[in-house]
Amino acid sequence: MTTAQDEDLLAGFEATLARHERIEPRDWMPERYRRTLVRQIAQHAHSEIIGMQPEGNWITRAPSLRRKAILLAKVQDEAGHGLYLYSACETLGTSRRELTEMLISGKQKYSSIFNYPTLSYADVGTIGWLVDGAAICNQVPLCRTSYGPYGRSMIRICKEESFHQRQGFELLATMMRGSDEQRAMVQESVDRFWWPALMMFGPPDAESPNTAQSMAWGIKRDTNDELRQKFVDMSVPQARALGVTLPDPDLVWNQERGHHDFAQPDWEEFAAVVAGGGPCNAQRVAHRREAHENGAWVREAAAAFAARQFPVAEEPAPASASKPPQEQEQERES
């Protein structure tokens, strides 16, 4: 491929972005754009899948049948979100199997929030209110992301997430109208999740090296600090409505800025959790690995059955799928 052709393609790609049009799967795109997208969408998908566990932890113990149904349906929605996002990733040539292997081998990350444990039923509500609330701040702008399939997945996901956030808030509000023990349970849960929720927007802008490029490509629409501010401003009146105290003594309205001032979370703890030192990192990945490995014989059985029923569909074996993931990765990058 000549340099001139390269430049033409790049110019066309950038012109599409400049017109605020979407990049679609079969368009030419710079390899770094593709790789960045795969990494971001995969990380997002993994977060949905790993995110099933902390709340799933309480399905069998939900204290009312209505809450049990709501919780099970919510965790099910998260499986759906993971599925949509893995599909978006597959349009970029990376299969779900490869992505799953990168997750369970620790090569790709997921949101650090899910490395914290859920220790009471109130956590189900707090995750809905704060964690899904933070996720919405992060995700709504992604509905307009430059890559078509990703944006379309996000539209569906955002619709469901806003529902989840309201459900979480409603659970907490109901518990706050219950017994003293329940109110204490809610406050304790909010105390534990507030700081990790703030971390969900990523490190401060000054320490976020990839932000500028991602914004230029339209993959990312707002900076980490902008989103964090938005989340705090949104959460303060909601906390007041609930009757809970956010555990930040520095949290105060700044008339001049028109925003709340607030303290930063412990970024050393964040770095440690990202590096694998959170309370549940090993547990979460082991759970996913176990499900994937225990399911292998079922997936094989269905594929073998299908091949026997419809022998035509079996051949020719798809070339790229027959290679191990590493090889395919290299092939695409070369």
């Binding site: 679609e24 799967p25 079969r26 030419w28 593709r34 970029l92 040539g93 399939p149 798809p318």
Partner: peptide, 16 residues
């Protein structure tokens, strides 16, 4: 076709 990285992949998607 040279410039369509996904045209030789299994995961060919329809026009959205």
């Amino acid at each position: 076709p040279l410039f369509a990285p996904s045209c030789d992949k299994v995961y060919r998607h329809p026009t959205f």
